[in-house]
């Protein structure tokens, strides 16, 4: 079930350092929203506030509200562990569990959530691997370790693992930055398919990628090193790349800085 994300007045800190300042935006369900901006502008930090991963870092804390449909993820009685079960995440470097087989990697999240019958588990694993366009490549070696796959396959394995638990939202933190162009293309195609079912937010350093995969694009910037990152604007991707309303966005996209 894809859900809408509604962020208002979100500020995140590392200890006393303010990493992002007062961000508000809405992310539509069943769409891809890309975050772009120079290094250090806080786009990854912001992404990690959306599933409460930011507070895992020592000293990390957050002020403000993140509504998933109508539920505030930062309400007092919300368990961050429960949040992460409904908001999945894919990381910059593929990180399948090295000690688990391909099958167990995909089943890992399911086993956390509850008990499944054996055939039920096998069915969901197959569906998730198909969903991640990986099934045909690994169906004969499900019991082999996930770390034996290529980088691009590992990343798709991580996507399969994330979608196996049917999250409401899928967050991707530069999912292709460690991959070669062909694997990148495979992931981008996959993102196009996944957005029919999930709300997807992707951080990318690659502006062509943002233009190719996303429906909406948010541009983040910081006024100087050490200053908190800010959301400059968010708009339809076509508009951002053709005719942004803020000069800084145009400068960044046309390569004048960053």
């Amino acid at each position: 079930m894809a859900k809408r994300i509604d962020v208002s007045g979100l500020t995140a800190y590392y200890g006393s350092h303010k990493a992002i300042d007062d961000i508000s935006m809405t992310v539509e369900p069943r769409s891809v929203t890309a975050f772009i901006g120079p290094s250090g502008c806080g786009k990854s930090t912001f992404l990690r506030t959306l599933n409460r991963m930011h507070e895992v870092t020592p000293g990390g804390r957050v002020e403000g509200k993140v509504l998933l449909d109508d539920e505030n993820l930062y309400a007092k009685d919300v368990d961050p562990v429960a949040v992460r079960r409904t908001v999945g995440m894919v990381f910059q470097r593929p990180n399948p569990f090295p000690t688990m087989s391909i099958f167990d990697n995909v089943a890992a999240g399911l086993r956390l959530n509850g008990t499944y019958k054996k055939n039920q588990l096998a069915e969901i694993v197959e569906r998730s691997l198909r969903g991640a366009n990986l099934w045909n490549e690994v169906k004969d070696r499900l019991n082999k370790p996930g770390s034996g796959l290529s980088g691009g396959q590992q990343q798709r394995l991580c996507i399969a693992r994330a979608i196996a638990v049917e999250p409401d939202v899928l967050l991707m933190d530069e999912p292709c930055s460690a991959l070669d162009p062909i694997s990148t293309l495979a992931i981008e195609d996959l993102i196009g398919e996944l957005k029919e079912r999930f709300t997807i937010v992707i951080v990318t350093h690659n502006m062509q990628q943002a233009a190719r995969v996303s429906d909406r694009t948010a541009f983040f910037n910081l006024s100087a090193v050490g200053q908190p990152g800010k959301l400059i604007e968010i708009d339809d991707t076509e508009r951002i790349f053709a005719n942004p309303s803020v000069q800084a966005t145009e400068d960044y996209i046309s390569g004048r800085f960053g």
Binding site: N51, M53, V56, R85, F91, A108, L112, N113, A162
Partner: peptide, 10 residues
Amino acid sequence: MHEEAALALG
């Protein structure tokens, strides 16, 4: 990244 992989799964 391995610990975060588990954390992100809830």
